[in-house]
Amino acid sequence: MNHRGFTAVGVALLLYVFAMVAWVPLGPGLVEVMADEQGQTQVIAHGTHFASSPDQLRIFAGTQDRLFPLAFEVVNDHRLLLRPEWPDTLHKRSLDLYVQSPIDGTLSLGNAFFVENAVLVPAHRYASVDVLDGSNQLGFHFPFQPQIFETIRNLMLHVPMWFTMFFLMGISFAQSIRHLGAKTLGLADERAVTSAQTGLFFGIIGLVTGSLWARFTWGDWWVASDPQLNGALVTVLVYAGYLVLRAAVDDPVLRARISAVFNLFAFVLLIILLMIFPRFNESLHPGKGGNPGFNTYDLDSSLRAVFYPAVIGWILLGMGMYRLRLRMESLSRRINRLEP
């Protein structure tokens, strides 16, 4: 398959991905419980349909096994007014909030209330209500995640960048090994540098999309001491160093040999920095440093249906770009040979 084939399939997949990213709605969820100006307790929700069936809503506070119902009033689709009357005795001071609705299913918000004055008792007299069976009646939607909210769409743009970079750097690594194994200056060196350049491009986009995501979920454009961030930035710098090294040597044979050695070193560092280090360090990233990964329970079937095509699409587009650049190189070589 030539560069056109890779690019065509990649772009087709990415068109599907972008369409899904733009149009699939976010599922319902509870954002926060807050006191408004009149001192009333309000529940703020996102993507919910409270107003369409206010009579069938049920609201509870407590923990999963010990719940008691709360009185409430529906303000609009995304807003509830609570009238909590806390009993004198509770089994826990910090309580979760559960909202059960026929359309949105069961929504929960951990540690929504903190009841200061309650006397704690080990026994309890609240009826245990089963709220866990509520499944929603909504169409295809992305899952609601606390903190992440609508930015979950960035999953299709940010994460595949690193997959694509890994893939292209892997090609570069393999071609560098091939070059060191071969005796003469073949195409391997050109393939190594071209794939590294393309991979670097995806790495830079990965940094930018990651920085944007960090701004909206962690509150800052760049977070110090996150091993994944350090690793990503350093990897980009190392490959930039690889290109600087190539620019520093004029003799093509020497350049190929030296940069191949550095490239092997760089790829091993990339593995250490992006795959080994983050597992031993505290990180804000999902799946690292004790944080749950997207694929454990967050990456549900609706995300999968877009995420996997996104990964394949970006990798194919990366391959297409890499092949296109190779073709440009070989054509410019041919032109140089034809010109006197």
Binding site: V234, L237, L245, I258, V261, F265, A266
Partner: peptide, 26 residues
């Protein structure tokens, strides 16, 4: 290793720093 690479490339301190500073981050 990096200084050996830079020496072979005929470049000096600057190239070692460009290649080396990211690589020593771990």
């Amino acid at each position: 290793l990096l200084a050996a690479i830079a020496a072979l490339a005929g470049a000096g301190f600057g190239l070692t720093a460009v290649m080396g500073l990211p690589l020593i981050v771990p």
